[in-house]
């Protein structure tokens, strides 16, 4: 193993398809038990406010609708930079995530803000397109100004055991990304077992993923604490094995502040300090930010909040 270690902290294509038969298996009931422990952590007072601010800074503010327009994206980009101006010392989100055709708009709006532009690509969300189309899609997004590309893996190929195909596809998309960071969506809701989630994570990381991401948000179930834990454990093992850090992005269905804090607790107790930044952890969400903001305001004022006072973009 040691001769294969890649020591640089940015992704380089892996040396080859990992032997998935050696990936540790997962016991679903054990995962369930561990997750319920995270959920019993009591996050109150200062730790709650600090945690919520962490969450805000890690959000990939997302709009992925067929009806998206430049106008919609422009408004979202403003929201990304001004989450709630009534509140002082509120961080901006990590990124705005849009379809490739709207990357240019987002890029322009966010210039100089420090907020990244992320774009889904590779025939999102089904991924049912030829590799050629996917590469073209990726290159287009990057050329339009995407800092980050969120690709989906070919779940069909994965299910039929064509791991090399999946691996190569990720590696090629990674290459097409150039300097852009690659987030690999496993679409765990279609992977059926936690064992598959773990294997897909390993495959993606070895193929060069900078981040692994749970879901497109278009399939139920999307992110769950259970799959997120399995993925974090895979990231940890990959780090110990190769020295390379890989980021994590749960996405889809995380709309409540409390749930986001559970994810943060899990992160803290599984990967620790190094990962607790937007550089290594993201929440893919569209509605989460407002709920987090309401909780922060509630902590400050002691009053429960109404969404009427928070902008919906």
């Amino acid at each position: 193993m040691s001769s294969l270690q890649t020591l640089s902290m940015t992704a380089t294509p892996s040396a080859g398809v990992p032997d998935l038969s050696r990936v540790p298996c997962v016991d679903a009931v054990g995962i369930e038990e561990r997750c319920s422990r995270f959920q019993t952590r009591s996050i109150k007072k200062e730790s709650k406010v600090a945690g919520l601010k962490h969450v805000l800074s890690m959000i990939d503010l997302t709009t992925l609708e067929g009806q998206d327009t430049p106008g919609k994206v422009r408004q979202l980009c403003y929201k990304a930079q001004h989450l709630h101006d009534a509140l002082p010392r509120i961080p901006h989100v990590a990124a705005v995530c849009v379809y490739p055709t709207l990357v240019r708009v987002a890029h322009k709006e966010l210039e100089g803000s420090g907020i990244k532009v992320a774009s889904v690509a590779t025939a999102f969300p089904s991924g049912q397109a030829s590799k050629k189309v996917k590469i073209t899609d990726t290159k287009f997004a990057v050329s339009e100004g995407a800092d980050e590309v969120d690709m989906v893996i070919s779940r069909g190929e994965f299910h039929r055991g064509e791991y090399t195909y999946v691996f190569d596809e990720i590696a090629e998309v990674k290459q097409a990304c150039g300097a852009a960071h690659l987030k690999v969506i496993l679409e765990t809701g279609e992977l059926s077992t936690l064992d598959n989630v773990r294997r897909a994570s390993v495959l993606a990381m070895h193929a060069g993923a900078d981040f692994i991401k749970t879901s497109t948000g278009k399939i139920e179930p999307a992110a769950t604490l259970q799959v997120a834990l399995v993925m974090l454990q895979a990231i940890r093992d990959f780090y110990y094995e190769t020295g390379r850090m890989v980021g994590m992005k749960p996405a889809g269905g995380i709309s409540r502040a409390k749930l986001a804090l559970h994810y943060l607790v899990m992160l803290r107790e599984t990967l620790g300090q190094q990962w607790m930044t937007p550089r290594w952890y993201r929440f893919g969400a569209s509605r989460l930010a407002n709920d987090v903001l309401m909780q922060i305001v509630k902590e400050q004022t002691g009053r429960y909040q109404s969404l009427d006072y928070f902008s919906k973009d």
Binding site: M1, S3, L4, L7, A15, G16, D19, R22, P24, V202
Partner: peptide, 19 residues
């Protein structure tokens, strides 16, 4: 995990700048 990984591709053992 990965102990029997195919030894293909480039294996740059370490870059001198990073300990």
């Amino acid at each position: 995990m990965g102990k029997t990984r195919r030894k293909t591709g480039t294996t740059t053992p370490r870059k001198s700048r990073s300990p």
